[in-house]
Nucleic acid binder design. Structure first.
Length: 210
DNA sequence: TGACCGATGAAT
DNA sequence: TTCATCGGTCAT
């Protein structure tokens, strides 16, 4: 279950912001280690904060579920070739924005897909964006949390090293990590059954367990 | 320029 | 389990 824990204030969150060397590594390491961290978006004098509870690793060139399989380059996926630490955002099903963090070194595409958050601060603003009243369904899916945060095409290529949009390290992680197949990539052949999805065991905001 | 489609969500 | 949905992508 989701345990009560003290919520760091904005200043504290900023202090433990994840840096470039954290993102400039392989996608599996980042996808695992970013679990439990805080995604922080400052809007004026308000702050939206969600704990990252579910991720997927996309391994770039050698991963036929990735948008950069076999080194494919298009206007959309171009930022995936940047050094880790920028956002890769794209639209799916004509209506939902998917948010990834680019990882690895420049020229080596990789990404960590953020699938679900546990909402911690700014829930009133999130609910206005999502038009839902039930907190359980506010941010427990890739298209849901991005809508709650107002994430869209404007975020494509945006740096996570800024002062108003970043990931903050959680210094007290006590959970167990679950591992499963990635979702919605049945079009892939070689990579479809790899267990590259990671989630916080028992957290109610994970989009699905199996 | 336009055919095509999906790293989903919601209803059942 | 099914299916509505539509802006963007990319090949032409």
């Amino acid at each position: 279950m989701s345990q009560k824990e003290s919520m760091p204030d904005f200043k504290e969150l900023k202090k433990f912001k994840r840096k470039g060397n954290f993102y400039a590594r392989d996608s599996v390491s980042v996808a695992r280690e970013i679990l439990g961290d805080y995604l922080v978006l400052r809007k004026g004098n308000r702050t939206l904060v969600g704990k990252i509870v579910e991720t997927e690793a996309y391994r770039g060139r050698g991963d036929d579920a990735s948008h950069t399989f076999a080194g494919k380059v298009t206007p959309r996926n171009r930022v995936m070739y940047e050094r880790g630490g920028v956002a890769y955002v794209y639209l799916i099903y004509g209506m939902w924005w998917c948010f990834n963090i680019v990882v690895s070194s420049k020229g080596d595409p990789g990404a960590v897909f953020i699938r679900a958050l546990e909402p911690l601060e700014g829930m009133d603003l999130m609910m206005k964006k999502r038009k839902v009243r039930d907190i359980k369904t506010l941010t427990n899916g890739p298209g849901r949390w991005t809508r709650a945060f107002g994430i869209d095409k404007k975020f494509l290529g945006r740096s996570l090293h800024s002062g108003d949009f970043f990931v903050s390290r959680n210094l007290s992680k006590t959970f167990k990590v679950g591992r499963a197949k990635r979702i919605g990539i049945d079009y892939a052949t070689d990579s479809r059954d790899l267990k590259l999805r990671f989630y916080i065991k028992g957290n109610p905001f994970v989009s699905r367990v199996t």
